[in-house]
Amino acid sequence: MPLANIGNLIGIWIAGLLTLAVLSYILGDNPVYRLAQHLFVGIAAGYAAALAWNHVLAPRLTRLVQAPAEAWPVALFALLGLLLLARGWRPLAALSGIPLGLLMGTGAALALGGILTGTLVPQLAASFVPLAPAAYGGGVMGWALALDAAFLLLCTLAVLAAFQYHRAARGSLRLWYRGVQAMGRLGRLVMMVAFGAILAGAALSFFTILQSRLAFLVYEWLGSLAELGL
């Protein structure tokens, strides 16, 4: 048997045992599960760190060593990185605000720009659809689609109303508040429909993954026994 195949076979066996170890959690927490859990956290953290090193830090530091004049910004980043490391050391603690401010500032600015151009404006634009049946070709179908569009708009507004909260209103605005409150109640029902869809989706996702793990155990793990002639 070639070496690669042996490696693969060993891998399948270990994967099978680890799968069983994690599945044992259904019966309750146990040392075997905890071992698998710690193994996983270690591998995941080590893998992420290696990738961060290989793809982000190493190429830049190499460039800095090879061509310091061109790669001067990397030196600056590295300096900021050192300040981040020095966060616990008093004399430099104040300066650690610079890298943190850089992280915050870029994150907030990009989040602001992204949410404005990528979510708020397009989603608002998509909410305001024509409500006239003629816009949908008229006839029974036109009416049906126009009704759908109106219902979509009503439901969206209702969900937004569900976010609003106010105390018992008095005076001239009482009727308005009551209207908003009623819309909010409808909004919560609409959200429950969305949650129902999400719950069903989550159940399907997790169940599919469970199926695939069991298929692995049956076909590949036990199947490898047949390969060994057992």
């Binding site: 397009p122 069903a200 989706g201 996702s205 997790f206």
Partner: peptide, 17 residues
């Protein structure tokens, strides 16, 4: 997308994004 987050992305599909 996974079935779990598919409903969360539907508005983006409806808006053409």
């Amino acid at each position: 997308a996974t079935a779990r987050i598919e409903p969360l992305l539907i508005p983006y599909q409806q808006s053409g994004q």
